[in-house]
Every structure is written in structure tokens, then in C-alpha cells.
Amino acid sequence: MTTTSPENQQATVHRPSVRRFILPIAVALTVLFCLAPILWELLTSFKTDDAIAEIPNVYFPSPNQLTLDQYQKLFERRPFLNYLFNSFLVSLASTVLALGIGAPAAYALARLKLQGERIILAGVLIVTLFPPILLFLGLLDIVRYLNLGNNYLSLIIPYTAINLPLTILVMRSFFQQLPKDLEDAARVDGYSTPRMLLDIVLPMTLPALATTGILTFIAAWNEFIFALTFITREDMKTVPVAGAQLGGASPFEIPFGPIAAATVLGTIPLVLLVLIFQRRIVQGLTSGAVKG
């Protein structure tokens, strides 16, 4: 730290000009890295079959190489709107449930003195590290026992559960930052705890609920193993599973175009969420992971 070699001093002197060249290149590489695969899939979904199969690849198709056929073929082959609806339903329901169950628990863990609070928190933290593959076998038992196969509940309940730890951690750190004065004042005014929660705390909590809800919605939309295992009826499948199972008319024909179209349609809702709520997503992820 105290000894500085001449080269290093030179590097410091040259730093601004180096930055001027390196930074734009680094930014461009970052953007390219993150966008290129998505853009390629987007481009493929709008190409004609001939343009898709042209070698060398067509990166800048002419107008007659562009078409909406791939989307049309996708809808002819599969009930893709159904898949989108299923994904929406399951993701929304499990988000509402995770918030409805998780936020009160987070409040209790942040504000009320519970015995065994540390054990509960430790449990919640450990559970975030469980991959779903360890759970599907036991859940399969429950699904069979309760006869929930091909029932949206077989997804809504596990999705609620896998989102609970994050909900509890994010909401707890939010409640801890919330000034306690209002709650104390409400108590002095004679509010009971439940009424105080509903009338005073809940309205202040809405932004944090939105932040958490976006994260849980994304996680539920993207889930794969449970959706693959518990739902076998074609019209009840969710987008990731249905997309992954898109096959051709014969084993030799892989429908690259419709697959690209399905990928684009299945990711659009999430792209929109990210574009609109970028700040909230970052905020939620960091407060959930770091402060937890």
C-alpha cells in the first residue's frame, strides 16, 4: 500500500484517457452480452423458414425474408393463449398468497417479540437454498394423496411456498426500517393490533408489497419442475413447460421458427416487468439477499 512502483504511477496519470476508451467498450460488450441471444431469438421468430435455414446465417433479412408465419404456426399447433393464461393465473394467485401469508409473518418477526424468532428466521434462510428437485418427490405424494394432479392448486401452493422466504426477508427488512412512532401513536389511541395493522401499517406497506410481488411473480412464471410433474393436461400447462415440449410433426423436423415465437411470447411479459420495474427488482433482490 505504501510502496508504489513507477508503472503504477504512470497508470494513475493515464487513467482518465484509458477510461475514456475502455469504458464505452466495456458498456457495449455488456449490452451485447445481455441482449444478443434474445435479439437472435426475436429475429428468428420473424424469419421465413427459408431464411432460418439459410447458410451462412442471415443477420439482416430483406423484407421478403420476414414473416409472421412462425407465430401463426405456433397458434395453429398449440393452444398458446391457454398456456399464457395458465401462467398468469398461477403466478398471480401464488404472488397474492405469498404476500398475504408472508407479509404478516414478516411483520411479526420484525416487530413483535416472538419466542423462537431466531430459529424461525434461520429456517427461512436455510429453506431459500433448497433446490426444487429435492421437494418434488415428497410433493408428488401430497398431490396424489389430495388428488390435486392437473389442478392449479398443485402449482399455486408450492409456488407460494418457494416465494415465502424471499417475501418474509424483504418485508421484514422493510418493516424494520419503518419508523415505529405511528404504530405507537395508534396504540395510544386505543387501536387493537389487527386494526392498527390494517388501517395504519398496510397503506404504508403497499410499495414494498409491489416490490416483493414483482419478484415472486417472476419466480412463479419461470418455475419448471413442479409444472412439468404435476400438470399433464395439455390445456393446463404453463408457458415454460409447453415451450420446452414443442416438438415437430416428426422426430426429424424441429420447428425452430415456432419455438422462437414461443420463446418470444413467453418472455414478453417478463421483459415488460423488467422494463417498468427495474429499480424495484434491484431493490427487492438486494434487500432480500443482503439484509437477510
Binding site: T30, W40, F224, V239, A262, V274, L275
Partner: peptide, 20 residues
């Protein structure tokens, strides 16, 4: 915003894109 995009997208569909 662009830099968090890959994280948010469904892995199964992204896997299809990479297969391609």
C-alpha cells in the same frame, strides 16, 4: 435494465434459445 434482463427470463425458454 438490460443487464438484469437475462436473470428475469424463464430458464426453460432461454434454454431453447441457446439450443438454437
Amino acid at each position: 435494465t438490460i443487464a438484469i434482463l437475462p436473470w428475469a427470463l424463464p430458464t426453460a425458454l432461454i434454454a431453447l434459445a441457446w439450443t438454437w
